[in-house]
Amino acid sequence: MKSPYDAEIIGIISSRVKIDPTEFTREMTLDSAGLDSIDIIETVFELEDRFKIAIPFNANAQDKEKLRTAGDVIDLVTQLIVEADALVPAPSQA
């Protein structure tokens, strides 16, 4: 299922490793795309800033498994945006 945020989330992930966003699939793992542990921390930070959300992610917990693929990231971020939107007025742009 496509979320209205798919393209932007993929854009943020792909910019980290300079891969064309069109080459990304939901099934692609962040690891195979070339994101190392530092890239993932920066990506999480950028997604939080962009969408004004807090992503529960501790590198020492099983959280890493929750963010294994691009699809995992899209689903979690979308869910957090929806939850945040339920609390505050909808953002002006999707």
Partner: peptide
């Protein structure tokens, strides 16, 4: 906090359930 390696509750070195 930004490094995502901090335990939210306590430090459990070498224990399987350690969180940072």
């Amino acid at each position: 906090d930004g490094l995502r390696v901090m335990a939210p509750d306590t430090c459990r070195p070498f224990s399987r359930d350690r969180l940072g």
